[in-house]
Amino acid sequence: MNTEHGMIEDPRQTALIAAIQEGLPLEPRPWAVIGERLGMSEEEVMRRVRALQGDGSIKRLGVVVRHRRLGYRANAMVVWDLPDERVAEVGHCFGRFDFVTLCYRRPRRQPVWPYNLFTMIHGRDRAEVRARVGELIVACGLEDVPHAVLFSRRSFKQRGARYRFVDLPEVPAASMEAGRGVS
C-alpha cells in the first residue's frame, strides 16, 4: 500500500516498522514478542516483514555492526564533483567496492557546495582510507574529478533512523549514544 512517493501508509505496517526499527528482541521467538506488543499474530508480523523485504523497503535484515568499535576507527565522507551525465556510471562503479558503505547522489548547493556524489569509506586508519580513495580514482577513471575527503573527528550520535515520532517508547540513553571518541 504505497503512495506515489513510495511511502507506506498502512497504519498496521507503520506500527510494525516502529516496533522493529530498534532491532529485534533477543528472545527465542522475536516475531511473536513483537506481535504481542502490537496485537498481531506472529504469522502476520512475519508476513509483513517479508512484504517489506519484497518491495525493497528493508535493504537487509541481520546483525548491524559498529565499525568504530570493531577497529575501523577512521571513516571519511568522500564527495565528488562529477559532470551530471557521469554520476550514475560512477555511482555504479563505486558500488562494487565493499569498503564503500554508502553511495548517494545529492544536489549541489552552489556556490558553497559543488559536490554531487557522496560516498562513505571506512578503514582501520586514515592511511587506509586514503589508499582506498586512490583505488577508486584509478578504478573508476576519476583522475580529473575534484573531490574532498571529510574525515570524521567525533561522533556525537549514531543510531538507525527512527520513524513515527509519536507513540514511540522511550529508548534508554545508553543505546542512543555511541561511538564517542576521536578517530
Binding site: 513510495g6 511511502m7 507506506i8 507503520t14 516498522i17 522493529i20 526499527q21 530498534e22 532491532g23 529485534l24 533477543l26 516483514v49 517489506l52 525493497g56 523497503s57 528493508i58 535493504k59 537487509r60 535484515l61 541481520g62 546483525v63 548491524v64 555492526v65 559498529r66 568499535r69 570493531l70 549514531q158 543510531r159 538507525g160 533512523a161 520513524y163 513515527r164 543505546s175 555511541a178
Partner: peptide, 25 residues
C-alpha cells in the same frame, strides 16, 4: 548476541530500511 550488543560491537539485530521509503530524511 546479548554480550556483543552490551559491549557495543553490534548496535542491533534487525532491519536496515531503504532511505525515503518510510518517512523522509
Amino acid at each position: 548476541l546479548r554480550r556483543l550488543q552490551a559491549a557495543g560491537l553490534i548496535s542491533r539485530v534487525g532491519p536496515v530500511f531503504r532511505p525515503n521509503r518510510i518517512g523522509v530524511s
